Simulated assay, not measured.
Amino acid sequence: MKKILGLIITYLFTVSVFASNVDTLLVYSKSMDKTIKNLVITPDSYPEKGKKYSVVYLLHGAYGDYKAWLGKAPKIKKYADLYNVILVCPDGDKFSWYFDSPVDESMKYETYISKELVTEIDEKYNTTLNKDNRAITGFSMGGHGALYLAFKHPDIWGIAASMSGGVDIRPFPLQWEISKRLGNYADNPENWENNTVINLVHLLNGKNLKFLFDCGIDDFFYDANVRLHKKLLERNIPHDYIERPGGHTNNYWSNSIKYQMLFFNDFFNQGKE
């Protein structure tokens, strides 16, 4: 009997330790004149009286939506509790690439995420209102989006990361509907040159953003990530770069986010110890 009671208590304790809450938040985007769904995961401690929470934004890849992260890496709910942070998973359309499209007025996902969504999250939740408590990451298209938004808006995000990110879109002019966002490459080369992460390094001064990116050596984006790493080294821009065995897979991303959350947590807690 004691053994059974012990097992029940252990089970209840295990369940209660990781009891994050998952909600769908509808946000109206004025820039695109539509309402967008976003997944918000709050830790079990939320709302703790008087506490302000750090926020991590998680961007999905091509073909995905706001629920993609929860399906590909369900342990993110555990990380919300473990690190006591709020996680926000926006819907970035299947192929937005998180640009403000120069050729399609209906696609303004840079404005939506960096301004409209951040403002809405800070108004509706108990967040710490500064860049040093705001992070962004993503996989594949979302990896591109995370670095793209953070490089362009280091006043919004103090730390960023990317996993398997398409950090140079130029080798893929016919893929993932990028041409619908930037125009045909042959006729609009400046749009492609100005909106690919590897060409935004000039926005970094080595101090305005802490970031890392990683990629599997069997990934089709591996070469682009290596080239970005080398370019940053040439410019003496501090960054963390990781490559490990793996491809463009859910297993890779669910493993990668584990380390990135630790990276973010260390940043959020700097100076608090």
Rank of each mutant, 00 (worst) to 15 (best):
M1A: 14
M1F: 10
K2C: 07
I4H: 06
L5K: 05
G6Y: 08
L7P: 00
I8P: 00
I9N: 01
I9P: 00
T14H: 07
A19E: 07
S20N: 09
L25V: 14
V27Y: 04
M32E: 06
M32P: 04
K34G: 06
I36H: 05
P43F: 11
D44R: 14
S45N: 13
E48L: 13
G50E: 10
G50P: 03
K51I: 08
K52P: 05
S54V: 04
Y57W: 07
L58Y: 03
L58Q: 02
L59M: 13
A62H: 06
A62L: 12
Y66E: 13
K67R: 14
L70T: 10
K72E: 12
K72F: 08
Y79Q: 10
L82Q: 14
N84R: 12
L87A: 04
V88L: 12
C89A: 13
C89T: 05
C89H: 11
K94S: 10
F95K: 03
F95T: 15
D104G: 04
E105I: 11
S106C: 08
T111N: 13
Y112P: 01
Y112I: 08
I113V: 15
E116L: 03
E116I: 04
V118L: 11
E120M: 12
I121P: 00
N126A: 10
T127M: 14
D132K: 08
R134I: 09
A135T: 06
G138W: 02
G138K: 01
S140W: 05
G143C: 06
L147M: 07
L149F: 05
P154A: 11
I156M: 12
W157A: 02
G158K: 06
A161H: 02
G165P: 05
G166A: 15
I169P: 02
I169Y: 07
P171K: 09
P171Y: 12
W176D: 14
E177H: 14
I178D: 00
L182P: 00
N194L: 11
V197H: 03
N199I: 08
V201Q: 03
K207S: 15
D214V: 06
D214L: 15
F221C: 05
F221H: 10
L232E: 00
L232P: 00
E234A: 05
E234T: 02
E234V: 02
N236Q: 15
H239C: 04
R244N: 09
R244A: 13
P245E: 11
G246N: 02
N250D: 14
N250L: 10
N251Y: 08
N251H: 09
S254Q: 14
S256C: 12
Q260M: 13
F263S: 02
F263R: 02
F264Y: 15
F268Q: 00
F268G: 01
